[in-house]
Design a protein around this nucleic acid. Structure first.
Lengths: 406, 406
DNA sequence: AAACTTTTGATTGACTTGCGGCAAAAGTGG
DNA sequence: CCACTTTTGCCGCAAGTCAATCAAAAGTTT
């Protein structure tokens, strides 16, 4: 008996593309592709690709996208990711205001609403506001609640992401341990993911502008100062969900400044928005808040400019250590103070490039956030999207649909 | 026509255990298990489990482990991971000496050899020494070169792990960009993985003593001061492989000390072994090196004790920031200075617990390395083991064996 | 308009894999 | 020695992937 020639590819061998959900990942980039292109890309058989595309089309995850140019015969039909099968709800809750938005599955914002809302009013009232406005936005664009694939929520304090509960947040009285995810899920009936707002901004900024960077440090400088760490392409939340807490790190030249946390020399007491405003007021300048300082700097106010630059240096002292420790390829500075742009960044760059090891800084970029207002919404949306469009999630959606029809 | 009842589990549905390599992961813990236990653990069918065990047994990855107690019928046979199918070579190259070892697939050291060797002699000579001693060790325990599953090498400088090349290492003249992995692979003909020695020690320490901690910071305090970061259970190497470089971070009370890197106030200039020895010599104490300082402290020398404690405080200043940034659940302090134990750690603890946010430290442990000498070898071995026993690697081994026999 | 090219859908058979059923094997307890 | 239990090997079934084939569809080229 003669054995058949060993095939180059054993059946079931395509370990990376064993499931329909994996094929789908290729289409996630939004490019329209023909079946032939997908066959070349995956190495799967024609019938397999066709069957999987059919399954994805039946669920609405992909849709037809016209025809490609003919190369002398029947033109091939193309397929493209359908970012509108579902929508995603995104909420960014700040200390004194909140935003909600509806996005498609690309993270593009379809509708949004912002309002003044004190997080200190407690979880029930704040989340009720969020839920109500989510519903209103859905109604406004004519989508049903069941069209929502999930809700992403950013909160201004440490969050245990796995359970969706805040853990001892300093500025959120009444929220400690509250089951945010459960509360919202009970109302909206969808997947709910909760995280720290800085983490969410890091995710948003990375996906929007720095996709090819696997090691990114996002710094939010506003009322507080915090960082979101992306290492190996993955958000790092730490053991208790409190990673990136740079606000109360001690900086050298702030020994005499008392912080609201009770310690001396915290970065936040030196370089946060309120700290800068207080400093200028002490100099006789009328500055109510951090944004006022930024506005003053924009008009050319020398004291404001100097204060921002010094704040940048103070932050740089801390960031230099972060750079040596984490060796990121980019630091993105966001938050209300970052609108000052050059002034703040110049101070940061000056110190970081001076203090860090040449090896770690040779390819390091330090940039201003390119979308200070949208990053949080994008990140909240992106967190949900990655979850619900993951190979596993798509796979299980296909399987349950198959069960339904059987 | 009647549709058959929908099966609870569709074929190919066992997403998490689709492959034989995944079943193998369950057996990696070394516990002997019966087929029935594996069925319960995996949810796979009896025949499937049996077939996979057969495949793994054929390759030698698992072996029979006697019979379990009968519960009234035929006693079940048990299977256990066979850590001796292959051996792993591990090498730790330090500045002035090097170690090589052979371990089994559990990482247990079967044979080892250490010697005096200057890394500055250059890659060819050092690696030749490593290769020669690897061969000698293999011969000593009666194993062939082809029994080696791979080689793990730790080097005292930054390494681009993906390519296996050092990048601008400060104390390794002639090594910059040298293809370490390629050079060794050409000789020994196996997988070669290279990494920074601190990273490797972090891996070793974590696996040996802190398996349930997903966020660990390993600090090596010796001639230099560096850290290995494990976040989300994964070693974080940074964008250029230079993460954890804490030696040249500036600490507050060292402004007047000049570091060998040319800057002032580096942690290494204050708290490294040579720095402590120099400090004591300036005080009239005879201390040749960091280990001499540690020895003095062990005899109760007050100046040495004070110096170590202050070094701990200086390190603590930096580690406090690391804690706020990374929120690890444990910091392990290793390196030659860590043998000082209490003195150094007391200084570190004092500062870290004082400076870090209560949230980040409430569950933080700061401990001495439990195996200062073995951690590096264990880590180098572990790095290789995780690579060659990964589900993918096992899977492909099984597939290629199937092709061979066909 | 006819010939040619290319895509697409449908079908078939071979192969592989996972699963359940059945019977033999290998124990225990009376 | 004889039931009884449990494990284990073997076989057929169902499902999925793949390669191959055929025919229809939808273009281009002559």
């Amino acid at each position: 008996m003669q054995t058949p020639p060993a095939p180059e590819r054993l059946p079931g061998d395509s370990a990376l593309l064993a499931r329909t959900g994996d094929l789908f990942q290729l289409l996630r980039d939004g490019k329209a592709r023909t079946r032939a292109e997908l066959i070349a890309l995956t190495g799967l058989a024609r019938t397999t690709v066709a069957a999987r595309i059919d399954a994805l089309t039946a669920l609405g995850f992909v849709g037809p996208a016209g025809e490609a140019a003919s190369s002398g015969g029947r033109p091939p039909s193309r397929f493209v990711f359908n970012a509108n099968v579902k929508v995603v709800l995104a909420a960014d809750v700040g200390a004194t205001h909140a935003s909600v938005a509806v996005t498609d599955l690309n993270g593009a914002i379809l509708a949004r609403h912002s309002g003044v809302l004190e997080v200190s009013e407690g979880p029930e009232r704040v989340l009720t506001w969020v839920i109500r406005n989510c519903r209103a936005l859905l109604e406004g664009i004519g989508r049903a609640e069941r069209d929502a694939a999930g809700v992403g929520i950013g909160l201004p304090g440490p969050v245990e992401h796995d359970t969706g509960r805040p853990v001892k947040p300093p500025i959120m009285p009444g929220w400690d341990g509250f089951d945010v995810a459960g509360y919202v899920r009970a109302e909206l009936g969808t997947e709910v993911l909760v995280d720290n707002d800085v983490n969410i901004m890091a995710i948003g900024e990375r996906h929007a502008f720095w996709q090819d960077h696997q090691n990114l440090l996002f710094v939010k400088a506003a009322t507080g100062i915090g960082a979101g760490i992306i290492s190996s392409g993955q958000l790092q939340r730490g053991a208790d969900g409190t990673s990136g807490d740079l606000g109360h790190v001690r900086v050298p030249n702030g020994e005499d400044v008392l912080c609201r946390c009770g310690n001396h020399g915290c970065l936040e007491a030196l370089a946060s928005g309120p700290a800068l405003a207080a400093k200028l007021r002490a100099q006789g300048v009328d500055a109510a808040s951090g944004t006022a300082v930024v506005d003053l700097a924009a008009t050319g106010d020398v004291q404001a400019i100097l204060a921002l630059r010094q704040a940048g240096r103070d932050m740089g002292e801390v960031l230099a250590i972060c750079v040596n420790l984490l060796n990121p390829s980019v630091i993105v500075v966001g938050g209300s103070l970052s609108r000052a742009g050059d002034q703040l960044l110049a101070g940061i760059r000056e110190t970081v490039y001076g203090r860090s090891q040449p090896l770690a800084t040779s390819r390091l970029r330090i940039e201003q956030s390119k979308a200070p207002v949208d990053a949080a919404i994008w990140g909240a949306s992106r967190m949900v999207i990655e979850h619900v469009l993951s190979p596993e999630a798509v796979e299980s959606a296909i399987r349950s649909a198959a069960l339904q029809s059987a």
